[in-house]
Every structure is written in structure tokens, then in C-alpha cells.
Computed example of a mutant assay.
Amino acid sequence: MSQVANVITIDDPADPRLADFRDLSAADRRPDRPGGRGLVIAEGVVVVERLLASPFPVRALLGVARRIEALADRLAPLDVPAYVTTAEVMAEVVGFHLNRGVLASADRAVQPPVADLVARARTLAVLEGVGDHENLGSLFRNAAALGLDGLLLGPGCSDPLYRRSVRVSMGHVLRVPFATVEDLPGGLDLLRENGFKVAALTPRADAVPLATAGLHTGKAALLLGSEGPGLTEEAIAAADLAVRIPMFGGVDSLNVATAAAIAFYALGIQDKSRETDPSD
């Protein structure tokens, strides 16, 4: 632990220095609420590493000794406190037993304006009413894995920086650009002005099969709706075309994150320039 200058051992769960991590299970007090303190909370070594490498200003870490030790190389150049305690004290602070053994807190980074994100992108996802934090986290992880340039969050979407979304995304929500679109479907006009073809993903029978839609040939934005009701009729009507994933009989739809992963792959199927080498 000698590599990390700011390691501080704490035995008292009431220590005020742990305020960033207190009551994570209390809906009205949790520090990552957008209407509250609005902090970003990363959980587990891998996700904390991604937070440390992100533009989000890290405030502090809290963890058991072996988890802080695992992060020593990443922490060495940073001037942030790393509070070390026992699993029992940590559970009292956060409100539940944390299997992953380490948390980090950060302030929110400024997200790009919608116009800037659209101007520099080739492939985007536009989300309407995706309110489930786990689905949203999965969408960000899929977007990172399959090379999307960003996500636009329309009305009814949950906060992608809520702890559960950050965890399910494996921290990729911290590096995939996103912006909020206040008006859908009106906001789709900006995409078309920038040369995007807007495709609404829907299971309805008259939609074009995804494989023949030609979305990989130019700029494309995929419009995705919430789990259950899917896209509104207004959103589908405002898209340039409706596309579907053909499925065998008896299955009418897929989970939104699963469907999105298939469609994201189709968007960038000929773009190998950003593919990760498995040997890295």
C-alpha cells in the first residue's frame, strides 16, 4: 500500500469523511440521485479503474485493504483519499454488504451538447422512454463493445449515471458520450440535417428486415423504445424507416438491450477500424 500516499484507515462507520458512500440503499438519501448531490458511484475494481481513467473528477475511494491494494498502480499518480476499512464497517456505511469490496465517488463531468455529439458521429442510438436502469446500463455496454459513437436520451429515460446503470454497464457509461434530447420526435430533425438516416427498431411485421435495411452504408441513428410498450407510434412515424429483427414463430420481441446489440452490430458491420485486438 506504500505506493498510494493518501490511504487512510477508518474504523468508525459514522466518520463524516465517508459521506459520499453513506445510505446507498436509501432512495431518499442516496448520493447518486440526480436531484440530490448527483455524485457518480463506481462499484468493483474493474468499474473503479474505468472511473479513474475517465473525465469524471474522482473524489474518494472506500474499500477493504485488498481491493485498494489492487488499485494501487492506478491510484499512485492521483491526489484522492482512499479510505480503508473492514467489510463490516463498509456494510454499515453503505447499507448493505458489498461483495465487490470497493467503491469510488466522483463529480459529474460535463456532457457534450447534442449538436456537437451529432456533428462528430457516424452511428448513434436514440432512446425513448428507457426507464429501467439495468437495461440502460446494458445499452451503454453494448454501445461501447460494438463501436457506437454515442447515445441520445429522450424523454422518459432514466439517469445513466445512477449506480446500478454504471455497474451494469461495467463502467462503459463513463466513456461513451451521451446527451439529452428534450423533444422527441422533433429532435430527429437535427439528425437528418447532419446526414443521418433514422431507423426505428420495432417488431411489427411491415418493418424492413434489419439485414436488408442498408444501415451500415452511411450515417445511421437507431431509435429504440422502452421495454414492454416499445416506441410510440409518433416516433416510428417520424423515422425514415422502420426495421425489425426477424424471429422464429412464437417469439414476438427481444429485451431492448439484446435487440439493440444485434442492431448495433448491423450499424457498424463494415467498420473494422476501431475493433479491439483480442491479444491486447
Rank of each mutant, 00 (worst) to 15 (best):
M1F: 14
M1C: 09
A5D: 15
N6Q: 13
D15I: 01
P16T: 10
S25K: 13
R29D: 02
R33V: 01
R33S: 14
G44I: 10
V48Y: 05
V48K: 14
L75F: 06
L78V: 06
D79I: 00
E92K: 13
E92D: 15
H97F: 11
N99M: 12
V114R: 14
A121K: 06
V126L: 05
E128L: 07
E134D: 12
N135W: 11
L136Y: 11
S138T: 12
S138N: 11
F140S: 01
A143R: 02
L148S: 12
D149T: 10
D159W: 09
Y162R: 10
G171M: 14
F178Y: 15
A179K: 10
A179R: 09
V181G: 09
E182K: 11
G186K: 03
L190W: 02
L191G: 04
L191K: 07
L191W: 05
N194Q: 13
G195N: 08
K197E: 14
V198A: 07
A200T: 05
T202M: 04
P203Q: 05
D206S: 14
D206M: 05
A207W: 13
A207N: 07
V208D: 05
G230N: 02
A235N: 12
A238R: 04
A239M: 03
V243K: 08
G250P: 00
T258H: 06
L267N: 12
I269Y: 05
I269D: 02
K272H: 14
D280T: 13
